[in-house]
């Protein structure tokens, strides 16, 4: 995004900070999944950069006033990737970091899929795919009805788009011109049974979403500048809602897992977790960046 380069360059230290946070989130994800003994590795790691950008730059949320009616709302519709969200909420200060080791443990607030209000800052419930987008649409609509200027961000996976209900929500928000809604699609090309284009092809995805009257952007979902620029641009698209197709690598950051659909719903073994943490540590500060 050359037109934003000078702006970004002038403040590139925060880009590096966000990249560093993304690495830390990945480290937390690996530790949490190892401790839980079950969970979803690929999507959680793949979303770390976007979650870092949202929680540490884009979203107007504050752990000191988690129920502020003016706060931006975030909905993670592909709830199985919640480890990376929990890691971000803890890092942001919504709850104690020590809770992270209790992911998926009995009586823990950190359920295997997000449950609204189980910890501060968690504004939605998700798990069964396609529901989060409709919930986000309700939030965006409520904002319009109350003339409240908060923005709503919703992440869905790509396999999730095979659910018909997603398109009910897409049709509704396109027609209502919900310009306060940004829909980020984690386009990592995998789902449980294989690659999306083998299981049930989604392409041409951009054309599909555009035909529902959305403004569509496509980005590299691991490039911090592109994530920030796209979310920024979405705020200025007034005539329709914006969808950002974020091309990501499932398992990003852990070589053994990258690109492999087999890691959709598996936690790492102890050995792999150790190796992954080693890898992530050496990556720290060395994540690819034009301004490094």
């Amino acid at each position: 995004m050359p037109q934003h380069k000078s702006h970004v360059h002038a403040q590139n230290s925060y880009i590096l900070d966000l990249e560093k946070i993304a690495v830390e989130l990945r480290q937390d994800v690996v530790k949490m999944l190892l401790s839980a003994g079950s969970g979803h590795s690929a999507g959680s790691l793949g979303l770390a950069d976007i979650i870092s950008a949202l929680y540490f730059h884009i979203l107007n949320v504050n752990p000191k006033s988690p129920n502020d009616p003016q706060r931006d709302r975030f909905v993670l519709s592909n709830g199985h990737t919640c480890p990376v969200l929990y890691a971000a909420l803890a890092k942001k200060g919504f709850f104690e970091r020590s809770l992270l080791k209790d992911l998926r443990k009995i009586d823990s607030p950190l359920q295997g899929h997000p449950h609204m209000g189980s910890v501060a800052g968690l504004d939605f419930t998700s798990g069964p795919l396609a529901q989060g987008l409709s919930f986000a649409v309700g939030l965006a609509l409520a904002g319009k009805m109350a003339a409240n200027l908060y923005r709503v961000y919703c992440i869905t996976s790509d396999g999730e788009l095979q659910e018909g209900a997603v398109w009910e929500s897409a049709m509704f928000s396109g027609n209502k011109r919900l310009n306060n809604l940004t829909w980020i699609i984690d386009r990592n090309n995998i789902q449980i049974d294989g690659y999306t284009e083998d299981v049930m092809p989604l392409e041409p995805l951009r054309a599909k979403i555009e035909s529902f009257n959305w403004h569509v952007l496509e980005i590299n979902g691991h490039n911090m500048e592109e994530i920030l620029s796209a979310c920024d641009l979405a705020k200025n698209i007034l005539e329709r809602p914006t969808a950002i197709i974020a091309h990501t690598i499932p398992g990003k950051g852990v070589k053994e897992m990258e690109y492999k659909f087999e890691w959709h719903g598996k936690p790492p073994s102890k050995e792999l977790a150790q190796q992954a943490l080693q890898e992530l540590r050496t990556l720290e500060g060395q994540i690819e960046s034009d301004y490094d």
Binding site: P69, Q131, V137, G138, L141, M145, G164, E168, S169
Partner: peptide, 24 residues
Amino acid sequence: EKFIQIGVAEQNMAGIAAGLASTG
């Protein structure tokens, strides 16, 4: 101003209802 026509989409309707209700 308080009536929302959803169209023939009962699932979307339930999700939207939940989103609206979550704001009070």
